[in-house]
Amino acid sequence: RYTFRTRGPEQMKRVVEWARRQNLSYRVEVHGDEYIIHAE
């Protein structure tokens, strides 16, 4: 189980790509310009 905090969509997309390659399920929360990605 991982939690990532990123700023801006570019970093968020990179984390999502990584999670997909690992076959993890993930969800993204948006708080202003901060993205929180939960993957497991």
Rank of each mutant, 00 (worst) to 15 (best):
R27I: 13
V15C: 11
E34D: 09
G8Y: 15
T6A: 15
Q22T: 06
Y2L: 09
P9K: 15
Y2T: 04
Y2R: 04
V16E: 04
V15T: 03
Y35M: 05
L24T: 01
V16M: 05
K13F: 10
S25E: 09
T3P: 02
I37A: 00
L24A: 02
T3Y: 09
A39V: 15
R20V: 14
A39G: 02
R21K: 11
R1K: 13
R20G: 04
I37N: 00
Q22K: 11
W18D: 01
R21W: 06
M12E: 01
Q22E: 09
T6W: 02
I37H: 00
Y26G: 00
G32N: 08
Q11S: 11
W18Y: 03
E34Q: 09
Y2N: 02
V28Y: 03
D33T: 09
R27T: 14
E34C: 03
Y2A: 03
I37F: 04
A39E: 01
K13H: 12
Y2W: 14
V16P: 00
V15L: 10
R14V: 12
R1D: 05
S25W: 14
R14Y: 08
I36K: 02
D33F: 07
L24K: 03
Q11Y: 06
H38L: 08
R7A: 08
R7V: 10
V30S: 07
W18C: 05
E17F: 05
L24I: 05
R14S: 07
I37T: 00
W18N: 01
W18I: 02
R1G: 11
R14T: 08
G8K: 15
N23T: 03
R20D: 06
E40T: 11
Q22F: 11
D33S: 09
T3L: 10
Q11H: 10
F4G: 01
N23P: 01
Q11M: 13
Y26T: 09
R5Q: 05
V28Q: 01
R27G: 03
V15I: 15
W18K: 01
E17W: 06
L24N: 01
R21G: 09
E29L: 07
N23F: 07
E10W: 06
S25P: 05
D33H: 08
S25H: 13
E34M: 14
A39F: 14
E10N: 07
A19M: 11
P9G: 10
T6I: 14
E34A: 07
R5F: 10
Y26L: 08
Y26A: 04
T6M: 07
P9E: 15
R1A: 10
R5G: 02
R20Y: 05
Q22W: 13
P9N: 10
H31L: 12
L24G: 01
A19Y: 04
R14F: 09
Y35R: 03
T6E: 03
G32T: 04
R14I: 13
E34I: 14
R5A: 05
Q22G: 05
E10A: 11
I36M: 04
V30Y: 10
V15K: 01
K13Y: 10
E29A: 04
E34V: 13
R20M: 13
H31A: 10
A39H: 02
R1S: 12
T3A: 04
T6S: 04
E17R: 09
Y35W: 10
R5P: 02
T6G: 06
E29S: 06
E17N: 07
V30L: 11
Y2K: 03
A39W: 11
V28N: 00
R5D: 01
R7K: 14
R27F: 12
V15Q: 01
A39N: 00
T3Q: 07
V28M: 04
R27A: 07
I37Y: 01
M12R: 03
R1P: 10
R14L: 13
R27M: 10
G8N: 15
A19H: 02
E17V: 04
E40L: 09
T3M: 10
Y2D: 01
I37L: 04
R27N: 08
H31E: 13
V16Q: 03
R21I: 08
E10K: 08
G32H: 05
V30A: 09
V16T: 06
S25R: 13
S25L: 12
W18V: 01
Y35G: 02
G8V: 15
G32K: 05
D33Y: 07
Y26V: 15
R7W: 08
R21S: 14
V16I: 14
E34H: 11
A39R: 01
D33R: 07
W18L: 02
R14M: 12
P9R: 14
Q11V: 09
A39T: 13
R21P: 00
V16F: 04
Y26D: 00
G32I: 04
E40H: 13
A39D: 00
P9T: 14
Y2M: 08
N23Y: 05
F4W: 13
V30F: 11
Y26W: 12
Q11R: 08
V30H: 10
E40I: 11
K13Q: 13
E34S: 08
R20F: 06
R27W: 15
T6Y: 03
T3N: 03
Y26I: 14
E34G: 10
E17S: 07
N23D: 05
K13S: 08
R27L: 09
G8M: 14
P9V: 15
V28D: 00
M12I: 05
Q22R: 12
I37M: 03
G8Q: 15
N23E: 06
F4K: 01
R1C: 15
T3S: 06
R21N: 10
D33E: 11
P9A: 14
